[in-house]
Structure formats: C-alpha cells, structure tokens
Simulated assay, not measured.
Amino acid sequence: MEFVATCPKGFERLLGEELTRLGMPQVRPLAGQVAFGGELADAYRACLWSRLASRVLLVLARVGAADADELYEGVRALAWEDHVPAGATFAVSAHGTNAHLRNTHFVALRVKDAVADRLLAARGARAVTDPERPDVTVSARLSDARVTVSVDLAGEPLFRRGYDARTAARVAPLRPDYAAALLAAGGWAERAAAGDAVLAALWPGQGSVLAEAAGAALDRAPGLLRARWGLEGWGGHDAAAWDALLAEADERAEAGAARGVTLVAADGRAGAEPACRAAMRASGLGCEARFCSPS
C-alpha cells in the first residue's frame, strides 16, 4: 500500500527520520510531504505516533486532471462504495491548481460530484456531504495534469493533540508539531531514550514545548488523547489492527510513566506560567515543570 504523510515545508527531513524510527518502509521525503509504503498497520502507527506529520493519507489512485471533465471521469471510475460506507458522510479537501483548474474550491466540487454520482449509481441513494465532521475525508492533491486521490486516515490534523486548548493568556502559542520539530532538530528523542532527560525551555509556547518533550521522554503516543479519527469511518478500516496499536500504546505509556524527565521553563510574560501548567495538566502526562525567571 502507498501512503503519504503531509507536513509543513521544511519538516520533510525530520519527518522522514521520524517515520524511519517508527519502522516505516520505503520512506521518501518530498516537497511538503513524505511518502512511505507498507501495510495498513504501518499507516495506523504513523497516525498514532508521529509528532511531525499533519495528516496520513492512503493513496487510492492518480488520475488525469488536464481539465474538469477528465478529473470528474477519473475520480468517478474509482470504487467509492468500498471506501464510503452506506449512510456515512464525506467531504473533499483539495490542494493545488493547474492551467485549467485554477480554483481549489472548484476542484473539490468536481471531486465531490464524482464521488456522489458513483455512490448514487452503486446504491441508488446519494451520499451526504458534511464539511465540518465527515466520516470520510477524501483528499485531492493536484500537480500538473494529474491528481492524487487519497483517503485521509487522520481526519483532523494530527497536530490537534487534545491538550492544546488555548487559554486567555496573552502569550503567543506554538503549534505542537512546531514544538516537536524544535525538539527533533535538537536530538531530544535520542537524549530522552537514554534516560533522565533534562530540558530547559526559554519561552515554551503556552506549554507545547514542555508537553511534547515530556510525551516523547515518557513514551506517550501523541495521538492517545484524540477522540476522532478519519480511519474509523472509512470503509476499509481494520478495527483489530487499530485496537492492537492502541493497546500497545497504552502499555507503553504505563511503562513510560516510571521514566524520569526534568522540565525547567523560563518565561516572565504575564499568564505564561498558568498557560503552561494548564497544558501540562491537559496532556495527562502526570509531570510538572519548574519555572524560573528568564533574566
């Protein structure tokens, strides 16, 4: 099977290294994404454990998209009845343009029509779209005269960890994946694996640097707090493989709680310390940071 883990530009090398450490085969960093192969369980593991990926996509096909008609026919030819269960809702996320398809909203509309028409022909009932909380998210990434059509296994972006609810503090937030990238660039995973990890963070971004560092040091999967996954509504979902990975992650988190990690934060801005402490509590990691003056 072919998968793509998307990421912010500049993260490709770090994400490739992370996926390799997670055991993903055929890792290939590209522009704004990292491709990898393997079994469905490999993609599930990337969803649950990657701190740097934004989404994990299961590639279904690459079809011609020289114009709107070719795009429609290519997408409609795919077996959407295997991917969108009866009664499930779906949505389309489109990225990229070309000389004839210059508007991503129009691309998304044509893909949506193709999927809905295929399902109507197969079942006699038109599928319902839900752009806010779909059961299945279809990704269409346009490049030149071809579009890569995928199912988004994450559903919502993976950097929405579940702990990063913003407080009223007047402190600039730092998205969890950006915090994880800073730590990865500094070799935090290797240091944390050696035991007795110590981190001193200056202006730790409303606690995201602290939570990401502690999570990695305590072997806590970053996806454990997430309530919704795109893979659970997908027609090809392997519930047994997913449940096994969740059970493994729970066991590792329980064992990792006994590890040592020391966190020291320095941020003298008003509201910074309460914001950081709130993030640490919400993360469920069971550890606290010591605060000191940045001066």
Rank of each mutant, 00 (worst) to 15 (best):
R228I: 10
A197H: 05
T89H: 09
G271P: 03
E70H: 11
E70K: 15
W188H: 05
A241H: 06
L57M: 06
T104Y: 06
F11C: 00
A179E: 03
Y178F: 14
A86Y: 15
A214Y: 11
A270F: 15
R126I: 11
F11S: 00
V261F: 14
G155K: 01
L158D: 01
A125S: 15
P131D: 13
A282P: 01
H105G: 09
R170C: 11
A201K: 00
E18C: 03
C7Y: 02
A172R: 07
G32T: 04
A211R: 00
G10I: 00
A145H: 14
A169W: 01
A116I: 09
A180L: 06
G16I: 01
E156K: 06
E12S: 03
T89C: 12
S93R: 09
A46N: 05
L60M: 12
W242K: 00
R290S: 15
D219G: 13
A65P: 02
P157N: 11
L60T: 10
Q206H: 14
E2K: 08
G74Q: 06
V147N: 00
D196W: 12
L158C: 04
R191T: 15
F291P: 00
R166Y: 10
G23K: 05
G236N: 09
T137S: 13
A211I: 08
H83M: 05
G186Q: 07
G186L: 08
R118V: 13
C287K: 06
G87R: 07
L174W: 05
D144A: 15
V27C: 04
G236P: 03
L231M: 10
M280D: 05
A116C: 10
G235H: 11
L158T: 02
A180G: 05
L19F: 12
A88H: 13
W242M: 02
A240Y: 13
G16L: 04
A197V: 09
A35P: 01
E156D: 14
F159I: 00
A94F: 04
R62N: 09
L15H: 02
G37V: 09
R45C: 08
L199D: 03
F90Y: 10
